[in-house]
């Protein structure tokens, strides 16, 4: 958690969402249990965790759509429980598997929500056309949503956020159930939003996708944030080191030579000619040099980016070992 605090050293006026001891309980069961985080303007922040870990509940509390049991959450300086309209005017929300009125066309659906947003009628048509073009739905703008695929619906939901010109976009499981092509497209749109300075809050259980777009992540487990920070920081914290380099080469005393490279903490011989090195930086060029100096022939040199999946797996593995299986069940 310490790295999270380090990351939170940002100017206070730059913080757009802040949660303090945020708790939600249903019938005495704590679904969200005292979580804390700050999200800075322009950041892409990921809420990660298995289904039922409390991600959606956290999001709904930020929007004032569900009551807060205790603690505080502030969005753009407003308390969503007290002034939900202020918050909802400036925050866009794409719910988990978003739905539309099937019997209306894409632009009619957007026109309805644009009216609810209170946009003046002169603005509406223009903003809707622009938003539909951004999410590449212009040619189906006058088609009924009933004919839309899941990916198109998700994009239409994003168009709604663009129409709103939201300062914060909250996306709940935006890519679950999308095919790989649609997922890539959608992640591209999220990156576009980020490039425009929109703060994006993303919840997902698909770790590799989140890793691609998120600046920082918070790992949820049974209603608690168990890890928070940038992926590289988390990797150092949980995996011990950031980079794992695999070398396939032969050469006399290669293992010893590799171990002397500065920054390398461990060398493991997987086979006679294969070594796995753990390092705190990218040591590939040094490894290549070492092989050449040993007059060996280098056949393969690869680096494993620290993957969120590995962090996740390792973290929960570490957790279950000492404290038994109780946590694992959650």
């Amino acid at each position: 958690m310490s790295s999270a605090d380090n990351n939170a050293v940002m100017a206070a006026d730059n913080i757009v969402i802040t949660a303090r001891d945020l708790t939600k309980s249903y019938d005495g069961v704590r679904v969200v249990d005292g979580i804390n985080f700050d999200i800075a303007r322009g950041e892409v922040f990921g809420l990660l965790g298995p289904n039922g870990a409390g991600k959606t509940t956290t999001i709904l509390m930020m929007l004032g759509l569900t009551e807060i049991s205790s603690g505080k959450v502030g969005v753009l300086g407003h308390d969503p429980a007290r002034s939900p309209l202020q918050v909802k005017r400036r925050v866009g929300y794409l719910p988990d598997s978003v739905g539309f009125y099937d019997y209306l066309t894409a632009s009619e659906n957007l026109a309805y929500t644009a009216k609810l947003m209170g946009l003046p009628s002169a603005d509406r048509a223009r903003r809707i056309a622009v938003a539909l073009a951004r999410v590449r739905l212009s040619d189906v703008a006058d088609k009924r949503v009933a004919t839309f695929s899941r990916g198109m619906r998700q994009r239409l939901g994003l168009a709604e956020i663009i129409v709103k010109q939201a300062e914060i976009a909250i996306l709940d499981e935006p890519t679950s159930g999308l095919d790989p092509q649609a997922t890539l497209e959608f992640l591209g749109l999220i990156e576009e939003l980020k490039a425009e300075g929109t703060t994006v809050l993303l919840s997902s259980h698909l770790l590799d996708q989140v890793q691609r777009v998120c600046d920082r992540v918070a790992l949820f487990q049974s209603g608690r944030v168990v890890l928070m920070g940038a992926v590289a920081d988390l990797a150092r914290q949980v995996l011990g080191a950031g980079f794992v380099v695999e070398v396939e080469a032969d050469g006399a005393g290669l293992a010893r030579r590799l171990a002397t490279i500065p920054g390398v903490t461990n060398v493991e011989a997987l086979a006679a000619d294969r070594f796995r090195m753990t390092a705190d930086r990218d040591v590939r060029s040094d490894a290549a040099n070492a092989v050449v100096n040993a007059n060996g022939s280098l056949r393969r040199l690869s680096v494993d980016e620290p993957s969120l999946e590995a962090i996740y797996a390792r973290y929960f593995q570490n957790q279950t070992t000492p404290s038994g299986a109780a946590r694992h069940a959650a």
Partner: peptide
């Protein structure tokens, strides 16, 4: 069931 409720209520209305 259409999953429009949360989307509509996320607009600035009560």
């Amino acid at each position: 069931s259409r999953r429009t409720l949360s989307r509509i209520l996320a607009q600035p209305i009560y």
